Computed example of a mutant assay.
Amino acid sequence: MTSLGTSRWAVGLALAFGVAYLGACASDTGPVTDPGTPSFGQRPPDAQRPGDGVLMFELFEICKVFVNAPAGTPDAVFDVTVSGGTTASFSTSLGDGECEEIWGNGGTVDDLVTVTEQALPVPAGGGSWATTHDMTTITGVFPGTPGPSSSGGNTASAAFSGGLGATTLSGVLVVFTNTFTPPDPPGDEGCTPGFWRNWSANAPGNQSDEWTDYAVDDDYDTVFGVVSGLGTLYDAVTAKGGGENALGRHSVAALLNATHPDVAASLSEAEVIQLVQDAFSSGDFETAKNTLAAANELGCPLPVD
């Protein structure tokens, strides 16, 4: 595999070399994938050649670009299938800036080549990958003319035509780009159980109801997926005492912090629920309560009115 840009030729020069490539194809690429098909230039997996990132007549080439990739990101793996005039299936891998010529077609058969990039693993710390591709083509007989371009996600597909007429596809270059978005940093805000008691639909006075995704009469056990004696969410956030009651107060407050759009909570909704489920499973209410209480006492940015 060759680094994208390290041997990038001018397109005109690359196409000129295509004449020599086509003339020497039988010795340069090894045997065809299907010996029974007289397919000039088709390349089996063990004869793939490094690419140079230049759109070339008769070739299907792919390149890989990583954007904002975290340390330790593995090479991208591509699954390639060919159908139509020739049948083939294989995989290959590329690192950042690398290219590879994965298929060649000399114009004697119609080959549909489909390339799908496998999903990249997400680091333990979270985040997400977005995969896109940009495809450029040439059409017609040698040296070809600019053809249609397209873009999309992790799968690219193009059909070479055996006829090689004026508008048939005769060269493909696909650049796959993976962009990593790191997770949002933990927030540093939280409102206490007392706040959520006083700024609820059940509170006396003129305070607004700051509960957003949940309501005061939602069932605690249904929301958290546990069996308790805490009743509704409002019952839990107003419960007195320690043990299960203390966990109930702080878990409801943490849940409301996590789901309020104006609170940069340090725990997510899923993390709060998991802490509660683990506490009920182990019977250790105190450890979970302390974690939730610390998150709830970071400082409250509400009320907003």
Results as ranks from 00 to 15, higher is better:
53 G>L: 02
18 G>K: 07
26 A>P: 06
45 P>E: 14
42 Q>C: 09
45 P>K: 15
55 L>M: 05
26 A>W: 10
48 Q>H: 06
54 V>D: 10
24 A>R: 04
33 T>I: 12
34 D>K: 08
46 D>Y: 07
41 G>P: 01
43 R>A: 00
22 L>C: 13
24 A>T: 11
19 V>N: 04
40 F>D: 10
22 L>I: 06
23 G>K: 15
25 C>T: 14
55 L>E: 14
44 P>W: 02
20 A>S: 13
31 P>G: 06
27 S>E: 13
39 S>D: 11
55 L>A: 08
42 Q>N: 14
35 P>S: 08
56 M>L: 14
39 S>H: 04
35 P>A: 14
44 P>D: 01
49 R>E: 00
48 Q>T: 12
36 G>M: 13
39 S>N: 08
40 F>V: 10
33 T>H: 15
41 G>F: 01
34 D>W: 07
46 D>H: 08
18 G>M: 11
18 G>A: 14
32 V>G: 12
18 G>V: 07
24 A>G: 07
27 S>M: 08
24 A>D: 06
57 F>K: 03
44 P>R: 04
49 R>M: 00
39 S>Y: 03
53 G>W: 05
41 G>S: 03
39 S>M: 10
47 A>E: 13
57 F>A: 13
50 P>M: 02
55 L>G: 07
32 V>Y: 02
36 G>S: 08
28 D>F: 04
49 R>T: 00
21 Y>W: 10
51 G>N: 03
54 V>W: 04
33 T>Q: 03
29 T>H: 02
26 A>V: 14
34 D>P: 07
55 L>Q: 09
40 F>N: 11
52 D>L: 10
38 P>T: 00
22 L>F: 11
43 R>P: 03
32 V>C: 07
18 G>I: 11
41 G>M: 01
28 D>V: 06
39 S>F: 04
23 G>A: 12
48 Q>K: 11
37 T>F: 04
56 M>N: 12
27 S>C: 05
49 R>K: 03
22 L>R: 14
27 S>F: 11
27 S>A: 12
39 S>C: 09
42 Q>R: 09
24 A>P: 07
55 L>W: 07
39 S>W: 02
30 G>T: 00
21 Y>K: 13
54 V>N: 05
31 P>Y: 03
19 V>P: 01
19 V>C: 03
37 T>E: 08
20 A>Q: 15
32 V>E: 02
52 D>P: 05
27 S>P: 09
31 P>H: 10
50 P>Y: 01
40 F>A: 11
41 G>T: 01
56 M>W: 13
21 Y>L: 11
50 P>N: 00
24 A>E: 01
28 D>R: 03
39 S>Q: 14
21 Y>S: 14
24 A>S: 12
24 A>M: 05
53 G>P: 00
19 V>R: 07
46 D>R: 00
25 C>W: 08
